[in-house]
Design a protein around this nucleic acid. Structure first.
Lengths: 194, 194
DNA sequence: ATTTTGATGGTATGGTTGTACCACAAAAAC
DNA sequence: GTTTTTGTGGTACAACCATACCATCAAAAT
C-alpha cells in the first residue's frame, strides 16, 4: 500500500469540513463538491472515505453531537473540582445559548439536523433523542440535589425546553445571548433555594 | 381574455399545495414540480403565478404565519367573549404545542423556514421576528393583568421560549403533547396567583 | 371581424448533484 | 521481482432542477 494513511483522521478532517461548510451556507446547501473544496481534497476522496452522501451526513451528525457534548464537559470542568449543584445546572443550560461562533454554528447545524430527522427516515430514530433524554435525567438529579421543590423531573423538562427555545431565539437574532442567560438565571433563582 | 380567473385564489391554492408538500417531505424537498403535482396544475402555471421559486417560497412563508395566527385567534374566540387572563395565556402558549396534524405540519415548516432564514439572505429579515415580538408583548400584558409577580416581560420571554422548546420536542417525538401541556400548565400555576 | 391579451400546456436548456467508472502510482506482500 | 492492495485523481453519466421559450386557445376589446 502507499501512504499508509490514518483513516479515522482523514474522516474527521472531511467531516469537520462539512461542519464548516454547513455553518456558512446551511446544511441544506452542503454538497459533495463543497465539502471536498472545503477539505482541500478531491470529490473522489470524499467518496472513498464515505461511500455515499447519506453516510457522510450521518457521520457528521455523530461528530456534531460528540463535539457539543465535549463543550458541555469542558464547561463542567471549568466549574471546578466539586462545583455547587447550581453551577453545574447553569453550565449545562447556558451551553444551549450560543455565544461564540462555534457554538452558533453547532446549534444551527444541530437544529437543521433535528428538523430534517422529522421527514427524512435516514436521519430518524433515537439518535436524536438519546442525548437530550440523558441530559434531562442528569439535570433532574442535580435539581433534586440542589433542593428544588416539587417534581424535579418536570422542572428539568421545563428548563431544557426553555434553554432550547432561548437558544433558538438567539440564533434567529430575536434576543441577545446575555438577555437569554439573564432570563434563565432569574428562573433558577426562583426555583432554587438560597 | 379567457377564463377571467381570480388570481389571489389561484395563488392561495398553489401555496397551500406547497405547504402540504412541505409537510409530507420537508421544505427542503419542495420543488416546482412537486408543488405543481400536488396542486394538480402544470409547472408552467406555478411559474405563471409566482415567477420564481424564491417568490413562491416567500409567499408560502407569509401564508404560513397568517394561518398560524388564525389558529391562535380561533383558539382565543373559543375561550369565550371575555375570557379570564389565565385562559388567554394558556390558549396562546398551547398553540405552540402541536396536537393535530395541521398544527404539526405548520410548526415543522415554520421551524424549517426559521433555520433557513439564518443562512439564506432572501428569507432573512424582520419577517420572522415581528410576530414573536408582538406575541411577547401581548403575553407580557396579559401576565401583568393576571397579577404575575416580578418582571412580566421576563416571564413572557421565558414562557415563549419554553413553549417553543416544548413544541419542538413534541415534534421530534421526545415527548407527548399532553406531557408538554402539563409542564406548561404547572409552571403557570406557579407564577400566577389563585 | 380582427386584434389584443390573459391563461395555459409543452418542451428545451443550462447548470448541478450524487455516484459510477477508469486509470495509475506507490508501497506492501509474496 | 512480480503481484496485490490502497490511496488518489479525473471524468463520465444519468437524474433532476429552475427557468426560458414557443405555441395555443378563448374571451375581451376594438
Amino acid at each position: 500500500m502507499p501512504k499508509l494513511v490514518d483513516h479515522e483522521e482523514r474522516r474527521a478532517h472531511i467531516v469537520d469540513a462539512l461542519l464548516r461548510s454547513a455553518a456558512a451556507d446551511g446544511l441544506h446547501a452542503v454538497t459533495m463538491r463543497s465539502v471536498a473544496v472545503e477539505a482541500g481534497v478531491s470529490v473522489r476522496l470524499v467518496q472513498y472515505y464515505f461511500d455515499t452522501k447519506e453516510q457522510l451526513l450521518l457521520a457528521a451528525m455523530t461528530r456534531l453531537t460528540t463535539r457539543m457534548g465535549e463543550r458541555i464537559h469542558r464547561r463542567l470542568r471549568a466549574a471546578g473540582a466539586s462545583p455547587a449543584p447550581r453551577d453545574v445546572i447553569e453550565a449545562v443550560l447556558l451551553e444551549a445559548v450560543p455565544t461564540d461562533g462555534e457554538s452558533r454554528a453547532f446549534h444551527l447545524i444541530h437544529t437543521e439536523y433535528a428538523v430534517l430527522s422529522v421527514t427524512d427516515p435516514a436521519l430518524a430514530g433515537p439518535a436524536f433523542l438519546a442525548a437530550p433524554d440523558e441530559m434531562e435525567a442528569f439535570l433532574a438529579a442535580r435539581l433534586a440535589a440542589a433542593g428544588v421543590t416539587g417534581d424535579a423531573r418536570r422542572e428539568a423538562v421545563l428548563l431544557m425546553a426553555a434553554s432550547a427555545g432561548l437558544g433558538l431565539s438567539v440564533l434567529l437574532g430575536q434576543r441577545t445571548a446575555d438577555d437569554a442567560a439573564d432570563v434563565l438565571r432569574h428562573h433558577l433563582d426562583r426555583i432554587l433555594p438560597g
